[in-house]
Design a binder for these strands. Sequence first.
DNA 1: ATGAAAGCGCTAACAT
DNA 2: ATGTTAGCGCTTTCAT
Lengths: 342, 342
Amino acid sequence: MNPTIKDVAKHAGVSTATVSLVIHDNSRISPETKRKVLKSIKTLHYLPSKSARDLVTQRAGNIGFIITDDHFLRTEPFYTRIFLGAEFEARDGDYYVLLATVESNFNEEDQLPRFIQERNVDGIIIAGKVPQNLIDRILELKIPLAFVDYETTNNCCPNILIDNIQGGILATSHLIGLGHKQIGFVGADIQHPSLLKRFTGYKQALENAKIGFNDKFVETGSLYPDRQNGYDAAKKLIEKNKNLTSIFACNDAMAIGVMHYLKDNGFKIPDDFSIIGFDDVESDLLLDPPLSTIRVPKIELGAESIRIITSYLKTKTIPKKILVPVELIIRQSTSAPGSKRI
Amino acid sequence: MNPTIKDVAKHAGVSTATVSLVIHDNSRISPETKRKVLKSIKTLHYLPSKSARDLVTQRAGNIGFIITDDHFLRTEPFYTRIFLGAEFEARDGDYYVLLATVESNFNEEDQLPRFIQERNVDGIIIAGKVPQNLIDRILELKIPLAFVDYETTNNCCPNILIDNIQGGILATSHLIGLGHKQIGFVGADIQHPSLLKRFTGYKQALENAKIGFNDKFVETGSLYPDRQNGYDAAKKLIEKNKNLTSIFACNDAMAIGVMHYLKDNGFKIPDDFSIIGFDDVESDLLLDPPLSTIRVPKIELGAESIRIITSYLKTKTIPKKILVPVELIIRQSTSAPGSKRI
DNA sequence: ATGAAAGCGCTAACAT
DNA sequence: ATGTTAGCGCTTTCAT
């Protein structure tokens, strides 16, 4: 059995209250006894019991991290990194991060994550898009909540977001800077706030460069921004716009699909056609050519979300919205428009 | 405030002891009162407090999951899935899984994961290779321990392992079955038990097929089994063995490196050269051609490790070694040796 | 079959 | 500046 606070008290010849105060570095303890107690703690290898402490302070010491299972299981290490970033940061903040995945079609009948049922979390982070009814049920329980990489419309809670507009501008301006004027946009799920913002950035960059926006250059019909839909979108877009020289895809998965379409149809990248993505998932490096993209600081997003929620738990103040900056990564899928096209 | 056991007791007109017994489904409670109590629990939405329960039962209710950070951050979502498998399984077993990453050069001065310091776990799972001194320190503390995807020499603890030998046999036999006789092996870190076993499987399959083992066909010099080292190994191997028609790489990362080398040097896969990997990480699907490989049931590995450790916590019996079977996945990077080679 | 009560290890209000 | 003590919500032994 591990030593308890009583053992320390006895060993140091003080009361348990004194030991407790020393542990919490309370100022009204004389340096003398403090030293004495600290020494006893050390020699006995004393560590406060978390459950005892949690019981009396009525806190759980955990932060819940909720994500849909298909997000977490995505091939690209996107949300896993956000999770890991949260885990890193929580370590310092005296919290543990408890992961729970929910199905993306979570509904009224489904059980809430166990850590909610057991009231085993002090706050919750939701990563990525989740069903609204899950959010509503958590809100009902009045558990502090923060969203990372998902913008909620009601401003109940802090949102930690990628600067998607800026990313869209960076990507599009990069193409414009290379000399492209016929720039397509490939997107999906236009309901999704993040993707919408990337599109907004696209339009804004065009406007900044005084290039007219052409909605024939936009393909956002599909539901999921995945590889297959990227392929299909590229097909549609390129078949109806023979003059297109480049595409900005709303994420790397779709960009990869676009690349496949281009290859299948004899385009040389980037000589004949430039393509840029968004997210910077590592598998980009596998590609031939490596994909230019917008880097999202995933670890930082996770860390920031922990900072926000723990600071809320301390001070009860919620910042509305945090924008985490992104970065243009130029690889080899983009270049000046070639002369090789017929 | 959530209702406590007292509230339930009062509401049902019984003692708290009775409520507790009902919760634990103790047989010495009359069906009558049991029904009554259950009803009160329901109407009050009562849930036992985890910290109170943990305090009195002297358990933490958590399982620690330790992994080196570079393992977790590796491109391939390999350990992430093992972790998720553990998380899934723990849910039913009434445990939470606490993640901690350690640096791969963890040393004596480094702090143990916080959940160990705070005695906040009932058992620990170590995934993949970690420094021996970390293992020693945990063992010293007498915390129950299990290893997943890492075989320890001292048999202190259960090992949940991939059937690497069988996988090596499957991969190599697949190539043999296609008609290959000149089969190279690309590996790394020959200290690593898993990789060693895959190599053993390779040799065994050759022997089974009465194909002589040729150590010129083997390249295992590098430390990490990553893409770059796969590339370099392929270069060495192929330069000195012009007659090679196929390679079995000890994991997919190296196989991808091998593929890149082959492509860079004008080989057509699989017409000129066959290549098979090991792990089946999803990014394989991105490759051109898709990589034949040995599938490792990652989710299952994680789940199994939780089963082992929780069953140990209950019954104090440790199974020595669990082998989780693997599966041959035939894609398009392997075919009969072509006639195109010069 | 059920209840009373002690106690798990800690914190914090109140005394001294 | 330090000690006393009453709980936090639960389990479990011992009575009844």
